[in-house]
Design a protein around this nucleic acid. Sequence first.
DNA 1: GTCCAGGAAAAGG
DNA 2: CCTTTTCATGGA
Length: 304
Amino acid sequence: MPLQDTHALTFSLTVPPDFRFAPCLDYMARSDNESLFEVRDGGVNRLLLLSGEPVLLRITAEEEQTLTVRVLAGAWKGEAARVEAERYIRDWFDLDRDLEPFYRLAMGHGVLGGLAREFNGLRLVGVPDLFEALCWAIVGQQVNLAFAYTLKRRLTETYGDSLEWEGRIYRHFPRPGQLAAAEPEALGALQLTRMKSAAVLDVARRMSGGALSREGLLALGSFRAAEEQLLQIRGVGPWTSQYVRMRCLRDPEAYPVGDVGLHNAVRLLLGLDRKPTLPELQALFADWPGWEAYAAFYLWRALY
DNA sequence: GTCCAGGAAAAGG
DNA sequence: CCTTTTCATGGA
C-alpha cells in the first residue's frame, strides 16, 4: 500500500460556542471494549474510509472554537478526502446544531437542569454510518451493553478493514458488501442469535444492493417515512428504528421510548421505585419539544 | 442458579 | 387490534 507523506497533514474545524470536546470524549470512553475508535491522551483516533481508502485520523481540541484533525496514516486522497472527513466529523459530533435553545429549556428543569450543567457542552454523539448504526442497534437488542460491545468487536474484527499504526490495530466497521455474502452460521459462531444474524445479513444485502441507504431514507422527506421503511426489515422493531432515527438520521424528536436504560435513568432521576409508565414518559418528554433526542441522550448519559 | 439486559416475533385473546 | 409468551445469550 502506498503510504503517502501524510504525517504532517493537519486541518481544523470550527465548532459552535456551546461545544466542549471533553464530555464527548468522556462519553466515548465509557466502554473499554470499544472497537471502532480509541480515546486516548485527550483525543480520539479513528479509522475512516475516505474516497474508499482507510485513513487513520486523530481529533483533538487544542485551540478555542476549534477541532484539530491530524492524518496519522493511510492513503490520503487530498481535497476530496478532507471534505469527506470534515462532513463525517461534523455529523459525528453534531457540530452544526445550536444547543442554546436546549440549555434554555433545561435551565430550571429539575431533572435535566442538573444534567445540562454536569455534562455541559456534550453533543449527541452520532453514528453517521447507517450500516454501523443498524447493526449496532440490532446486536444491542435485549443484551447488556458489555456483550453488545463484544458482538460489535467480533463483527468488526472478522469482516472489517483495518490498519496498523505504531503497534496498534485500528479497525473500521464492515461495509455492507463485506457481510452480505456471509453465512448465518458464520455469524452464529460469533454468538449472534439467529434473529440477529438474519437481521444483520438482511440489512447488509439491502444496503449492498442499493435498496437501503442513509441518503435514500433522508430523501423520503419525513423521519416517519424513513422509520416505516426500516420497520419493513425483519428484526428491526420500534426500538431499533427509533434508535437509528436518533443517532444516525438525527431526527431531533426521536428517542427510544421503550428503552430499558432510559426507563432506569428516569426511575433513578425521579426517585421512582418502579419503571416509569408510558404516559409518565410522554409527559416528561413533552417538556422538550424538538429536543427529545437530546433530552434522552442526556438522561441516558446519567447512567454511565 | 437467578435475574436481567439500550427487543422483536409469534402466539393468544 | 391489543396483550402475553417465547426466543436467545452472556454478564453480574
